[in-house]
Nucleic acid binder design. Structure first.
Lengths: 220, 220
DNA sequence: GTCTATATGGTGATAGAC
DNA sequence: GTCTATCACCATATAGAC
């Protein structure tokens, strides 16, 4: 369920990477995340990334061969974190408890890694051509497995018979909105940034509406 | 509540535009929408737009002076349509009726104008620097007015005391998700595109969960 | 392993012929 | 009003010195 790490991410010999390499690669990926989140793939220049990483431009090509390789490396870094929260949901959980926890975790993730969420969003919005490999048959299978958890809760009479697929989209859409559209949210609410408290209030509201809307008994 | 139309959108004399001009400008804006939605502002080249519009590249500069002017023209075209649906909500409406109608309208808009939604999304995600003028004090005032409608419904005991501001974000986020993340939705569900029927099912699910979640009596 | 210097092609924009 | 020809610049990428 992760993007395959491209061959050129390994050191030329195939041995584990050295200290300098690790440090430099990390600095480059960090800088690239900032730039890709703000300008997308095509809109980002290797030069800007190099300046931000405080490394010669040619080094980026040394570590990642080309721009696409760097972009894929950034994306795979992100996606590894991404689905893990959603994997925590299990048939045996209490729906109210599990969903509340999921929403809080996802919102906290949105608060701490807004750029990760934004890069993923921009990639999908612009057609997701770099993710075709990721959005494979495996991914569909994984998604069906996740939807099956909700179906099991429905069959057990623990929640209303809503469509599990659309419920997942509601969960994803409503939580990611706080990372991706933070600029708009700040503007209309007159804030300069979303605080931890803002996000907790948002979580509480989402939990109230979604749980009640699905006929789920709230967690105690 | 609309972006000011730049002076250069008027013909040089200030008179209404001629037929050829109107036709060419429309073709350019249409082509620009496609490209900006796929590659963002920086990632889009005037050349690509010109090729898609089947016009000489220099014509774009003739009609819109520069790239930013064209982008703003596209954005203002979009935003005019955008808020109009949300303005329809009024204190005197029945909440169940009005919200159901709003969700359906918004989803139908997402289905018919996915690119519009995506350009707006990418602009906001990447910082919204071109929208600072639009996200003005006026916009905050307008937003507060919209939130007040929900507050009035709450005060009248027609719905639960949820936070109106977060409810608006839930409405925006959950409906736009179907336009912006259509690629991901199609991949996980194994569809090639979202049909009218898909969107109606999605609307029904959203309406069920959100109305019930807010303690609103469903429309008859 | 690292970085300077450079090749090659695409970018936004414009001058000036029609 | 419209479009051809061209500018100055910046993009990605690489060759080769250290």
């Amino acid at each position: 369920m992760t993007l395959e790490v491209p061959a050129h991410r390994l050191s030329a010999s195939g041995k584990p990477a050295g200290r300098i390499r690790q440090k430099n690669e990390q600095a480059i990926i960090q800088a690239a995340e900032d730039e890709f989140a703000r300008h997308g793939f095509k809109g980002t220049s290797m030069n800007t990334i190099a300046l931000k990483a405080e490394l010669p431009k040619a080094n980026l090509h040394y570590y990642f061969t080309n721009k696409l390789g760097l972009y894929i490396a950034v994306l795979s870094n992100i996606i590894e974190l991404w689905d893990s929260t959603f994997n925590a949901l299990s048939v045996d959980d209490d729906p109210g408890e599990a969903l509340s926890q999921y929403i809080r975790t996802k919102m906290e993730f949105s608060r701490r890694n807004p750029q990760a969420s934004r890069i993923f969003a921009m990639e999908v919005i612009s057609g997701g051509t770099c993710l075709t490999e990721y959005f494979s048959a495996d991914y569909r299978e994984w998604f069906r497995g996740r939807a099956a958890v909700f179906q099991a809760w429905i069959d057990a009479g623990k929640m209303d018979p809503v469509d599990p697929v659309h419920l997942i989209f509601l969960l994803w859409g409503s939580t990611q909105h706080y990372a991706d559209f933070a600029t708009q949210i700040c503007q209309v609410t007159g804030r300069s940034r979303l605080t931890k408290q803002d996000m907790e209030e948002a979580s509480n509201n989402l939990i109230h509406i979604i749980l009640k809307g699905c006929g789920i008994k709230p967690a105690v």
